[in-house]
Design a binder for these strands. Structure first.
Ligand SMILES: [Zn+2]
Ligand SMILES: [Zn+2]
Ligand SMILES: [Zn+2]
Ligand SMILES: [Zn+2]
Lengths: 134, 134
DNA sequence: GATTGTAATGTAATACTATTACATATGATC
DNA sequence: GATCATATGTAATAGTATTACATTACAATC
């Protein structure tokens, strides 16, 4: 039984930056946030992001070209995670909905399509933002 | 009762290019294809794409930064269309799966999230490409 | 048919996102 | 300490999208 290797310095920096953010960050936003720590080139960020995604610690939001720290407790239990993105405040909610997974799996089965990964992203207004102003 | 305005020259050029393609095309690929017709700048393509998307004649594939002509007969009947993208041959299948829509709507309802649009994209291997070589 | 308002177009410049290529360093294993 | 794999550093470049401004086309109105 192997133990997961520790995160490297750059990986930790990137993950911490994402975890501290309320909203998704672009690779370049991460880079700018980490310039004080000595990062200088986009590739340093992209490489860290790649490793973090492989471990499931970070997700890419395709419709934003941006990244978020994993915020779902059971993320490893399903391959198909969905994201709800608020257009107003930018927050992202990560969730797994069995019915969605079933629906996509069903279609795939019927059409002999082998799913490798999925991007499921809904955009709209979150509950906080649709509440009448206090 | 208003009649939908006819497509403009650039819009027609872009739509025809997409319709003739077996796979999604990037905006710049479209531009290159249309240089012989006189197009010169990215914006000419992006503007046409924007109008075509408003009409539902073209969809953007978020995970590819590319565009496809609408290939779904009932596309107007639901707001939530899904795409199956083959990693091998690049073809895109557009489909609506009721269970997926229900699942996402259900989550949205429970969390008071107002859905404005959705991007549902599965990546994998299509039936043609997974068949043993003939 | 001149005037006006709107939508579409043309062009240039710039901003944003991501990858390729190559050099160097670090740390474990033998 | 030689070797190998992984992580880093840096520069250059490729790919995607938008801002800003000038011009043209065209229908509606006067
Ligand atoms: Zn997650
Ligand atoms: Zn919100
Ligand atoms: Zn469609
Ligand atoms: Zn295929």
């Amino acid at each position: 039984m192997t133990v997961a290797a520790a995160l490297t310095k750059n990986q930790s920096l990137v993950l911490d930056t994402l975890a501290a953010s309320q909203t998704p960050l672009s690779a370049y936003a991460i880079l700018d946030a980490l310039r004080p720590e000595g990062l200088r080139a986009p590739l340093q960020v992209y490489r860290a992001l790649e490793k973090l995604q492989e471990r499931g610690l970070v997700h890419r939001i395709e419709s934003l070209n941006a990244f978020v720290a994993c915020g779902h407790p059971h993320c490893q239990e399903t391959e198909m995670i969905a994201f709800a993105i608020c257009e107003r405040c930018g927050t992202v909610d990560e969730f797994a909905e069995e019915k969605v997974v079933e629906g996509l799996s069903l279609w795939a089965e019927r059409h002999a399509f082998t799913i490798q990964k999925a991007a499921i992203e809904i955009r709209g207004i979150c509950s906080d933002c649709s509440r009448p102003a206090a």
